[in-house]
Amino acid sequence: MEDVTKTRVEQLIDYIMKNCLWQFHSRNWDRKRQNENILGMTTKLLCGEPVTPETPEDKCYWVDAFCLAEAYRERHPWLATLGVDQIRELMAKLHEQLDFQTITGSLNEELSDQHY
């Protein structure tokens, strides 16, 4: 990952780690699903694409995605200088890093405990 992209991903993850409670779901599968949905919707919102939540679960993800997109726009004006493909690439790298930090690289054994 190039230095500018790496720095930007770190800035975006830093916001999630400090401000988003949804990162603390108690199971791997729930974290995976939430990361995919929230970051997927956030990506669409940042790219100016419509997001139409249909289920109650989708609506919960949409609220988190909307708040995250707004916070990103407010705190990181450099986002406005990126094209749609660049935003998609950046958000894909963010998603990959977030999954590592909250799921695959986590030392929290309760995330995969079948009896918890």
Rank of each mutant, 00 (worst) to 15 (best):
E2T: 12
L82H: 02
L45T: 00
I16A: 03
H115R: 08
R73V: 05
M91K: 12
I16Y: 01
K32M: 09
E70F: 08
M1F: 05
E36K: 06
Q11N: 13
R31I: 10
N37I: 00
D58V: 14
L82Q: 02
I38P: 08
S106I: 03
L94D: 09
T7V: 07
A69K: 09
D85S: 15
Y61E: 04
N37A: 15
L39I: 15
Q23E: 10
L98K: 07
A69Q: 04
Q86S: 13
R73P: 02
L107I: 00
L111C: 08
N35L: 15
K6N: 09
I103D: 02
C67N: 10
E96I: 15
A65F: 03
R31Y: 03
A69N: 10
R33M: 12
H115C: 09
E2A: 03
H25C: 04
Q101F: 10
L94E: 10
G83I: 01
R27K: 15
M1Y: 07
F100I: 03
K6L: 12
I103E: 01
E54C: 07
P56L: 12
E2N: 14
S26Y: 06
F24N: 12
Q97P: 00
W78A: 01
M41V: 15
L107Q: 00
F100N: 04
M1T: 10
E49T: 11
M91W: 10
G48I: 12
Y61R: 02
R88Q: 13
C67L: 13
N37F: 09
N108Y: 07
E96G: 14
E96A: 15
G40N: 06
L39S: 03
T43K: 05
L111G: 08
L79N: 13
D85C: 05
H25M: 08
R31C: 03
M17V: 01
P53D: 14
F66C: 05
Y116G: 02
E96T: 15
D113R: 07
V84Q: 06
D58K: 09
V51P: 06
L98A: 15
Q114V: 06
E89Q: 11
V51I: 06
G40I: 01
Q86M: 04
D64M: 11
Y15M: 06
K32E: 11
E36T: 05
A71E: 13
A71G: 07
C67R: 12
Q97N: 04
S112H: 13
R88M: 09
H25Q: 13
Q11T: 08
C47I: 14
R33P: 01
T43R: 09
D99P: 01
E110G: 05
R75T: 04
P53S: 14
W62Q: 01
S106K: 10
Y72S: 04
N37Y: 08
Q11L: 15
L39A: 07
Q23D: 08
D14H: 11
M91Q: 15
Q86N: 10
Q34R: 12
C60I: 04
I87K: 00
M17N: 13
T5C: 07
Q34V: 08
L39V: 15
L107M: 03
K6P: 00
Q97M: 14
K18I: 06
L12C: 09
I87S: 04
C67T: 07
E57H: 02
V9S: 01
K59N: 00
C20F: 05
L79W: 10
A69R: 10
W62R: 00
D85P: 01
L107F: 03
I16F: 03
E70M: 09
M1W: 06
